[in-house]
Design a protein around this nucleic acid. Sequence first.
DNA 1: CGGTCGCTTGACTAAGGTCAAACGAGGTGG
DNA 2: CCACCTCGTTTGACCTTAGTCAAGCGACCG
Lengths: 241, 241
Amino acid sequence: MSEQKMLPHDMGKAICVLGLVKGLPPEVVGHVASLARVDVLPAGARVFTQGAEVRRAYAVLVGAVRIRQIGSDGAQALMRMIAPGEMFGTIVLFTGEDYPADAETAMPSHVVSWSKADFLALTMAHPQIAINIIGMVGQRLANVQNRLREMATQSAEQRIAHALLMLVEQNGAVEGKAGAICMPLRRRDVAELAGTTLHTASRMLAAWEKTGLLARSRPMLVVRDASRLRRIAVGEPHRKT
Amino acid sequence: MSEQKMLPHDMGKAICVLGLVKGLPPEVVGHVASLARVDVLPAGARVFTQGAEVRRAYAVLVGAVRIRQIGSDGAQALMRMIAPGEMFGTIVLFTGEDYPADAETAMPSHVVSWSKADFLALTMAHPQIAINIIGMVGQRLANVQNRLREMATQSAEQRIAHALLMLVEQNGAVEGKAGAICMPLRRRDVAELAGTTLHTASRMLAAWEKTGLLARSRPMLVVRDASRLRRIAVGEPHRKT
DNA sequence: CGGTCGCTTGACTAAGGTCAAACGAGGTGG
DNA sequence: CCACCTCGTTTGACCTTAGTCAAGCGACCG
């Protein structure tokens, strides 16, 4: 795993993008930054492995990370894509369990991390950090619960639409009705995000590309008409009750 | 909403069952208890409503509470059943959003609660409480993520089996291979938990009752053979990849 | 005793998963 | 520079799961 330290003042700036340190005085941010380690990773590098003991908490500075969970039966689900500025593998530090998923870079990335001991100490020392973490995980929880409900009640088409919309929001690169998803996204990724098969996802996306709803700029996707996609996402009810 | 205060020393004892106050000195537990309110509610009472402003954090002392989310299309999903000793409507206090779901009693219940201001103040004053909350929500998140993966990859039969197993674990009333689910559970509840329809759930449960895997003691269910149910839950793979 | 609510059951259907095969682009080595 | 190999994708044909529609039953409550 290739790794390097940034200069302190660079770190301070880089760290600021994290919600983690919101509301903290600059000197504390500096302290948080001083404890951080930065790894520069190629695409496809494993950051941590499902079932492994938790040693560090992570965040993405540049690039993207795939968080994938594998069931005991071997079935895979893509829990989330991590965009720059987001943390991952953090909450599990507080539950004492092992990593519940695999994390691997989806493209060349810079990943910052803290040791478990340092991170726990920071949390105890600065209640504001704890509050920030609760807020972050609260939003994650709300997000996952929404996906759970969608998964339970909506059609494959709607779920795929929702997955794309989520990715667009997450990446923020929106202009007008269009929004780019700034990370490599394979059909299989979309399928696992939406809880469907590679084949169904491929058919659906191909159809949408045909109607100009989507465009592809090689490994990335561009949503050309977000409002139409949103209409599909809430679509006409397919189930009753 | 019928409501009453318990005597202080009773509250202290009752509050102790909550993971919230784990590791706290007795006098702090007493303080937490002194700020609590207890409501005695009949079955079917609304505790809070999806979309309403967050004012209080809750826990169940006796009884059971259904947490149900309704999508914009009207589709309903049962996010969780709350058993005695568990908290609900708590995390959202820290995210500043509205309640993301409805909460209503599934049977006559005693519900304890704290005001938002009190609860936040407690959290700031005692980092250990914040840590406990992160631990709780972390486990919730892990649980929901597991359900999400199951929802995405498993058959209706497996998901229903998982839902029942989860409820048995949650209620702890296990003896040998059998485990009672100590709360009223309608077919519809099981269906919404497992992300399937009333009809499919009914068929499945009826079949399992026929083979002696399950038994029904009026509004509750008893799992007669947990190991067989577990075998169904992990069942032979229905999907590839 | 009647009404409501929850449950059961059967017949039908369609969404979407499975199986199979082939294509295209990108990278590598001869 | 081309041949080849691999990985991701596309597409078609088929079939199963489970959702939909439609009744009817039984139990509990007022």
